[in-house]
């Protein structure tokens, strides 16, 4: 006699969101599921998608990354082609860090030009991230929204700037990443604020702020899990795909420090550190992962079943 399993049935369904692609490219659709991640139950029309970060501006790469992506420093278009073409990234997260005043301060129009260049270099879907400086981003996002000749997602809209970012996205038909600092209520509040502006819900993904392994991962884990459970339980404002940017994994000493011999090879360790962070995000319910190491793309895509 076979055992009857108590498989939960949820009333809600995660909204399907598509990151549009350029001509000849493959758009990325995530969401649409009505069940918890990694399980054969319910419907999972779309698998989680793994993308890669392409970053402008100077950066100091840890050992595990310098060998892999070091050759592409200063060549965002080349890096974008490589990520989407050879490394299997299904989308790109173009971080315009180079526009930050502390990072050399590329001008806003230079930043916008990089966006055009990357969009022309590959038809892969693109999320464009700001530089993190409030004042620069306030000029950067409208410029990017105008410069992008095909729809992208802008990252990110938060409580302080959501009118500006969402306004720019609305005007040119882009989507937004809705950001909040590891708090399920703030995540919902952001989506309600966007809804009040009339922003289309199927052009919003949630970024709950991803802590790196060993440095706040557990908070992110539970927030993502709760966002997913709330969405599946019928809370429409939280029934959205979740994006986890794994960049913070590379801020951990364990991922970068070559001096500790008892920790094992720093290249393997760094890569595992990012991979582990990503696997925990997938287990919690993340739909979009942004990684920095090419090997993570394959590893995490392999784990990202439908």
């Amino acid at each position: 006699m076979s055992v009857v399993l108590p498989i939960p049935v949820f009333p809600g369904r995660i909204l399907a969101v598509t990151l549009p692609a350029g001509p000849g490219g493959t758009p990325v659709t995530v969401g649409g599921q009505n069940a918890l991640p990694l399980l054969p139950e319910g419907e999972h029309p779309n698998a989680p998608a793994v993308g890669m970060e392409v970053r402008t501006g100077p950066q100091e790469l840890p050992p595990a990354l310098s060998g892999a992506i070091g050759p592409f420093a200063g060549d965002p278009a080349g890096m974008a082609r490589k990520c989407a073409g050879d490394w299997g990234a299904r989308f790109l997260f173009l971080s315009l860090a180079g526009c930050h005043p502390d990072a050399g301060g590329q001008s806003v129009s230079e930043g916008a030009a990089v966006v055009r260049e990357v969009l022309s270099a590959t038809p892969a879907p693109v999320i464009v991230g700001g530089c993190g400086d409030e004042e620069v981003d306030a000029r950067l996002f409208p410029a990017v929204a105008e410069a992008a000749h095909r729809p992208v997602f802008l990252s990110y809209a938060e409580e302080k700037n959501y009118r500006l970012v969402a306004g720019a996205a609305l005007a040119y038909g882009h989507g937004v990443v809705s950001w909040s600092p590891i708090d399920i209520n703030m995540a919902k509040q952001m989506n309600l604020l966007l809804a009040d502006l009339g922003f289309p819900p199927d052009r919003v993904v949630i970024d709950p702020l991803t802590g790196g392994l060993g440095y706040g991962m557990e908070y992110t884990y539970s927030i993502v899990e709760r966002i997913r459970l709330a969405g599946l339980s019928g809370d429409a404002a939280l029934a959205r795909p979740v994006l986890c940017h794994l960049g913070d994994a590379w801020k951990a000493r364990e991922a970068t420090d070559a001096s500790e011999a008892s920790w094992g090879d720093v290249v393997a360790r760094g890569q595992r550190w990012e991979e582990t962070t990503g696997l925990a995000c997938l287990a919690a319910g993340a739909d979009l992962l942004v990684c920095r190491h090419p090997a993570s793309v394959a590893r995490l895509s392999g784990a990202a079943w439908r």
Binding site: D183, I184, N185, M186, K188, Q189
Partner: peptide
């Protein structure tokens, strides 16, 4: 604290 954060919105996160 979580209930507080939930209520820190107009009228409430559970709108």
């Amino acid at each position: 604290m979580e209930l507080y954060q939930r209520a820190l919105f107009l009228p409430h996160t559970d709108e």
